[in-house]
Design a protein around this nucleic acid. Structure first.
Ligand SMILES: [Mn+2]
Ligand SMILES: [Mn+2]
Ligand SMILES: [Zn+2]
Ligand SMILES: [Zn+2]
Lengths: 149, 149
DNA sequence: TTCGTTGTTGCAACTGTTTGCAATAAGAGA
DNA sequence: TCTCTTATTGCAAACAGTTGCAACAACGAA
């Protein structure tokens, strides 16, 4: 698992300046094991110092994604979550009812991606993609209260 | 292919009132063969009459989706497109470079969805989901201009 | 240590979308 | 046809995210 100074060194090596604001954002996202929305990162940063603007949080997260140090996953419905590169490629199963996000293996999909490439010339780069549906809990709840109570 | 009056009849049957605004939105989306964003629907409606507010366009599209008369597909990056139910279930291949959207068959994915259901208890309902990547044209362009000129 | 370049930030304006609310009008019933 | 109920609308405010720009500050050079 890469630590804060790894990210900072990588940015510096690419000619970016290391500011306290960038350090704070990196600190937060590097110490989180889960995905985080930009707002969540911002809230966490605010707990430590108010000297970081929300626009800077967005810009820093974008920078990390561009530099390959973090991943951006669009979960639909405006939900965009970020994670460090340590959080490897996988699929997101998003429950439309409760919003739960379950990580799933991407490997079984790979033959299909190659099939799509052969058929359409389209190269899939699905490090993080979302499939919508209904989670086990919501399904159970729905089954327990069928159409006519 | 269901026509305007089919949608209108369906709404009326469900107790919704038929307003000129709703008729205009239905008219536009029913006569379009492709996906449309809400803004595109609004622009098309404006060509005929200025008597429809953008908020009403959003609300009408939401209503059509809720009633199963239209589908909403989140293509990521804030792009949300609508189409009538005539535009059946399929996958969207979204080019990250040029934004091109290619429709692809969803059928080959279905065994994997059942596999996910078995492993996670998660029921996939992927009538419309998006896979990001690079389209054939953008790939060709990138190949023509390799790393060093 | 100081200076200067220029990459980075905060701010405020702006985008696309949603929402509360009072005014309006669809459509059922008299 | 007219009336009444209430679903629907337009509007303006609220919302998350983006962007232009002037002020600021990181950091290499002197
Ligand atoms: Mn994940
Ligand atoms: Mn489609
Ligand atoms: Zn759920
Ligand atoms: Zn392309």
């Amino acid at each position: 698992m890469p630590h804060c100074h790894t990210f900072i060194a990588a940015l510096r090596q690419h000619g970016y300046r290391i500011t306290p604001q960038r350090e704070m954002v990196i600190e937060v996202i590097a110490h989180s094991r889960q995905h985080m929305t930009a707002e969540e990162v911002y809230a966490e940063v605010q707990k430590r110092t108010h000297a970081v603007n929300i626009a800077t949080v967005y810009r820093t997260l974008d920078l990390l994604v561009e530099e390959g140090l973090a991943s951006r996953a669009d979960l639909g419905g405006g939900q965009v979550v970020y994670a460090t590169a340590a959080h490897g490629p996988h699929i997101h199963l998003v429950c439309r009812q409760c919003g739960l996000v379950v990580d799933a293996d991407v490997v079984p999909f790979e033959p299909l991606f190659r099939q799509i490439e052969a058929a359409h010339g389209f190269v899939c780069s699905p490090q993080h993609f979302a499939i919508y549906g209904q989670c086990a809990a919501c399904r159970a709840a729905a089954d327990a209260v069928p159409e006519r109570g």
